[in-house]
Amino acid sequence: MSVEITRDDVAHLAGLARIQLDDDELDRLGQELPKIIESVATVSQALEGAGEVEPMSHPTPLRNVFREDVVHECLTPEAALAGAPASEEQRFMVPKILGEE
């Protein structure tokens, strides 16, 4: 199974992943990704003749976990904001999120 992934596809994926790759990185990933994907695409062959298989998302059965709704100790605003790149008035300060071109 040969895989077609162009440099433009990589640029699109990087956009979705919010990583601003430079030209060299796009070139390199454009070379590497098809090879990696080709090697992992064998998973579909593995299923030939396997019949109906229930997909497994998790090693142990998941169930809802509940707890009593009681107040307990949590981070102070100072601790929560201690690692923030910028903060103001006990809030995370972020670049503009509206009015993008």
Binding site: V10, L16, I19, Q20
Partner: peptide, 21 residues
């Protein structure tokens, strides 16, 4: 996007892009 480009190394970027795909 600029931060994630500067802050992540090659292997991390490779896996994020692969997973996104």
């Amino acid at each position: 996007a600029a931060t994630r480009d500067a802050g992540f190394g090659d292997e991390v970027k490779r896996r994020i892009i692969l997973g996104t795909y």
